[in-house]
Write a protein that binds this DNA or RNA. Structure first.
Lengths: 344, 344
DNA sequence: GTGAAAGCGCTAACAC
DNA sequence: GTGTTAGCGCTTTCAC
């Protein structure tokens, strides 16, 4: 059985192909009776509009491209990050009959810009979702801009471009976490900063400082160590922080991996978590629930963010809704086992 | 600047559109000089063939669909599994100018069949990659079969259908792991079976028995416990196995999660791994390297398998190469910290 | 409210 | 080797 076309439906329903097109696309100006007959014919013939023909005629591909940094298979955090982005974007695509094209790439590659430009010119998606850390990089943003394809940035740290952006309220959430720790009685709350290139993670540092201030604690550089987002760097920072004579009673790390590193070191040093030391992270990666004690952390609503991004792009391509400004999503503070009252 | 079409290239190069088409598609029967002029024009105009027009005319979508069970975000093993599949399939797609469409779905949903049928009829991919555990399920296989779209099954346990299949040599590899444990001097090697619906995992049990036989050890049902692939089930099995008076000195689990559960229980019971008990898993999920001691395991070359699957489908769609039989990929035995010589 | 006609940009089939 | 001609199955435009 070869596929039925719009002509088959039209002749079965006794109408013109244009009317079928109207019904199929939910356009107005079709009488109820006609609509019904057409729908019956569609069902009877198991008719599905041909994507290619539709795209060719309408100049819309109904394709959304999701671009992200290629996760190393063995870095769970990235794998989970990517999966959540995909899940959110797919949700929007399914609602709207779009398809999602995924494109992992290496943000350190000096040719990414060209690669992405070629990709977009070849595929011609209706919109592009650019996930962090790619969404911060000027060379990448520029390469995509020149194609003229609408794009949305997910979790960019700085709002350098004017394009639409979805992000978590990193600063407020980090302040909230800090206040939460202070509310447990902690006075010496340390912070482990993240990779300097990862802006979102930098903003959390500012939030930490806000939180201290709001809790009436004062900031001290002796309570800050610089990591690079890796577990190992978290360990290194923890070793320094826990070697201080005035050792912190709480450590808040700019991401979960580093927080996991902190816990690991505490374990090695025989420091009880959370009895003697509270540890908090950020991101709620899968690891956060696997380690012992399970990590108190902030969950970035990534799927919701990606869904919003995809939806905005699709709307924009169909009804030309504007694509500017920023949508902020509140992080959720997940209290688990790694935080508790400050020791006396 | 609006996109240039094949006509623009043709007129700039002073040839017909058919000649441009020939050059762009690498078809024979074009003189070197003409080819050169056309290529120059292509470059000058930054011409990219339009996917939709091409698909419409050629009846090929240049789309490959990758279908897999939707990973729960917090189950790392699945996230890593999916990412590896995607990476492999994408590799093949990039080499061949295809695009990859991903479609996570819930294999327990009673309507998956219909869902996938609709997906395929709507998208019309040139081929479908079906990953385990979906690749075993008759209702799903049937739904895809009726669409007539070529498909490849990844890691199906049983070879029920005649379609092309890529898989790991589960049986041989499990036998190898068992022989490896025996070679360390272990006499009582226990096995934790996996979810009865997950066929690949079942075959490992057969491989375990092969390995015992090949090592001159005899099989005993008292050394087997039935799990369901979850960490928790691994813990339950370990509790039973380690409660035996004649306790095993090695436990081989049909997947890594269950092996992790075994290690967790050993830890709780104060049994040293690998001093008093060797533990081995299967799959090399991310978790395998995160736990302490790091898990000795078998790595399924998922990315290579998915790449092969995608490549086979693309070849098939372009040059009608047959799509039958099975490709087997050897697993890699990764010796890490959880296995060691048998205690005296 | 409905329809006719003209493409969208390419490939396929065949002619030269 | 190269060109001509017809579609592919839809949307768009405009007429009624």
């Amino acid at each position: 059985m070869s596929r039925s076309t719009i002509f088959d439906v039209a002749s079965l329903a006794g109408v013109s192909i244009k009317t079928v097109s109207r019904v199929v696309n939910g356009e107005p100006n079709v009488s109820a009776g006609t609509t019904e007959r057409v729908e019956k014919a569609v069902k009877e013939l198991n008719y599905r509009p041909d994507r290619s023909a539709r795209s060719l005629a309408s100049h819309r591909s109904n394709l959304i491209a999701l671009i992200y940094d290629d996760p190393s298979v063995y870095e769970i955090p990235s794998a989970g990050y990517v999966i959540r982005l995909q899940q959110g974007a797919l949700r929007a695509c399914r609602k709207t009959n779009c398809e999602l094209l995924i494109h992992p790439c290496n943000y350190q590659d000096e040719h990414v810009g060209t690669e992405l430009k070629t990709l977009i010119e070849t595929v011609r998606p209706d919109g592009v979702i650019l996930a962090a850390p790619l969404s911060n990089m000027r060379n990448i943003l520029r390469a995509i801009s020149v194609t003229g394809t609408p794009f949305v940035r997910v979790s960019p740290g700085k709002k350098v471009f004017k394009e639409f952006t979805v992000s978590m309220n990193d600063r407020e959430s980090s302040a909230e976490m800090t206040r939460y720790l202070a509310s447990l009685g902690h006075k010496r709350i340390a912070f482990v900063t993240g990779h300097p290139k990862h802006d979102a993670v930098q903003i959390r540092f500012a939030g930490y400082q806000d939180g201290l201030r709001e809790s009436g604690l004062k900031f001290s550089e002796r309570l800050v160590e610089a990591g690079d987002n890796s577990i190992r760097s978290g360990e290194a920072c923890a070793e320094k922080l826990l070697a201080r004579k005035q050792r912190p009673t709480a450590i808040f790390a700019a991401n979960d991996d580093m927080a996991a590193g902190v816990i690991r070191v505490a374990d090695r040093l025989g420091i009880d978590v959370p009895g003697e030391l509270s540890v908090a992270g950020c991101d709620d990666v899968a690891l956060a629930q696997q380690i012992y004690p399970a990590l108190t952390t902030l969950r970035q609503p990534l799927a919701a963010m990606a869904e919003r991004a995809a939806m905005a792009l699709i709307d924009h391509s169909r009804v030309a809704t504007p694509l500017r400004g920023a949508d902020t999503f509140a992080a959720k503070l997940l209290v688990r086992e790694s935080t508790g009252p400050a020791p006396d």
